[in-house]
Amino acid sequence: MANIVYLDDEKCLTDIFELVFEDSAHTIITFNHENDAIKHCQQSPPDIFFVDYRLESMLGDAVAHQLPHGIAVVLVTGDLKIESDFIFSHIINKPFKLDELVNVVEKLGANKHEN
């Protein structure tokens, strides 16, 4: 199964993400601070990385640019207008539906293991 990291400065959203996947076979690690997530991913790259667009001290695409190559990066945002040069694997709009999270994980996790 997939190793997944979720970064959002809103703890309630990382808590929800953990609850959605608590009974799955996926390994889930959540972060509420950008530097902690970047450091973790540089040391132990996940298969899938979910990132909020507007974080406490930087934008999600700036975080994504600091990650190792080969990670599927999913942008989670409530912003209607995003200007980014980063190519995201998927974009999820807030407020998101829980089944959308599951579907994205299943799709990207399956694609990762097919390669």
Rank of each mutant, 00 (worst) to 15 (best):
M1G: 14
M1T: 11
M1P: 12
A2Y: 05
A2V: 09
I4F: 02
Y6R: 11
L7I: 03
D8H: 00
D9L: 11
T14K: 00
T14M: 02
T14W: 02
D15G: 00
F17G: 04
E18H: 11
E18T: 13
V20W: 03
F21H: 12
E22N: 09
D23T: 04
S24V: 02
S24N: 00
A25R: 09
A25M: 07
H26I: 07
H26V: 10
T27C: 00
I29Q: 11
I29S: 06
H33A: 13
H33G: 06
E34M: 04
D36W: 05
A37K: 01
I38S: 05
I38G: 10
H40S: 10
Q42N: 14
Q42F: 10
S44I: 01
S44P: 00
P45E: 08
P45A: 09
P46T: 04
P46W: 01
I48H: 08
I48V: 14
F49N: 03
F50A: 13
D52K: 02
Y53I: 06
Y53C: 03
R54C: 10
S57M: 08
S57V: 08
M58Y: 10
M58I: 08
L59N: 12
G60T: 12
G60E: 08
A62G: 05
V63K: 13
A64G: 08
L67P: 03
P68Y: 07
P68R: 07
A72V: 00
A72Q: 01
V73H: 04
V73C: 14
L75W: 01
T77N: 11
T77E: 05
G78M: 04
D79C: 12
L80C: 02
K81Q: 13
K81H: 15
K81L: 11
I82L: 15
I82A: 14
E83Q: 07
D85K: 14
I87P: 03
I87C: 13
S89Q: 06
S89M: 10
H90Q: 15
I92F: 03
I92V: 11
I92R: 04
N93K: 13
K94N: 09
K94F: 01
P95F: 15
F96K: 01
K97V: 06
K97N: 04
L98A: 08
L98I: 12
L98R: 07
D99M: 09
D99V: 05
E100G: 02
E100D: 15
E100Y: 08
V102S: 02
V102G: 00
N103Q: 15
N103D: 15
V104S: 00
E106S: 10
K107D: 04
K107M: 07
A110Q: 03
N111W: 04
K112C: 01
H113G: 04
E114P: 00
E114W: 10
E114Q: 14
N115K: 10
